[in-house]
Amino acid sequence: MEATDKIAQSAAAHPEITVRGVSKVFSTRSGPVEALSHVDMTVESSRFVCIVGPSGCGKSTLLRMVAGLASCEQGEILFRGAPQHGPCRQIGMVFQEYSLFPWLNVVDNTGIGLEFGGMPRDKREQEAHRYLAMVGLEKFALAMPHELSGGMRQRVAIARALTNNPDVLLMDEPFGAIDAFTRIILQKRLLDVWEKSRKTILFVTHSVDEAVYLADEIIVMGTNPGRIVDRFSVDMARPRQRDAPVYASLVTRILALLEQQDTAEDA
């Protein structure tokens, strides 16, 4: 009991994710490029945070660093107050590219994180089915990835990340390669899943509309060097109406901000 209290306390004392003074420089043939410059941000537990910005602003790099897939040489990234060394099971990730294992069927793909964790087959299949039902794909448990549409594959990828029961879900433009109509449906489904599971979500996108539709909080990034330009809290009730004046004006404001960055760069 005491131990759980301590964990609860530390969770309350620290935000889920803290990014403090993070910079990243890539050396390229034409000299060093500053991908990220002095980025500070925090993500509170159970919040849905979107990072929006043009390509090249370092948003994917930042997400990979939070996931522990890329190293962080300058500054620090903390998970519940503790620095991260490499990937960990509490932080799950969904990628933009299709990341399902093509030789495994849907249920085996969904349960593979538990397989890595050493859980016996029948138990992990049970868990996998539970999360497949959450994304509405329980009927496709035995299908192979190549038999699924792009949107369905991403839903499986989301179920797979959730099956590991992480505290944080990182999403790197998960709907970037999906047609506009399917994308809107997937956004609705993702909000459903989020409301059911109450994970902390850090979602990277280049679509301002997607960010405004999904997020509690939007972090806008700019390029050259990659940095945070502004932050917005979104207080609109869900499901959000895209034609509502507040919605439209927020989209317009963020777009104007991004455009301003662009012209500042040209000058």
Binding site: R64, L69, P87, M93, E97, I112, F116, A157, N164
Partner: peptide, 20 residues
């Protein structure tokens, strides 16, 4: 992406070798 996905899901080096 496949090896990254495996690592994020908790795979160790042996898992990556054998299962990816």
């Amino acid at each position: 992406t496949l090896t990254d996905a495996a690592r994020v899901l908790g795979a160790n080096q042996v898992d990556i070798f054998r299962k990816v």
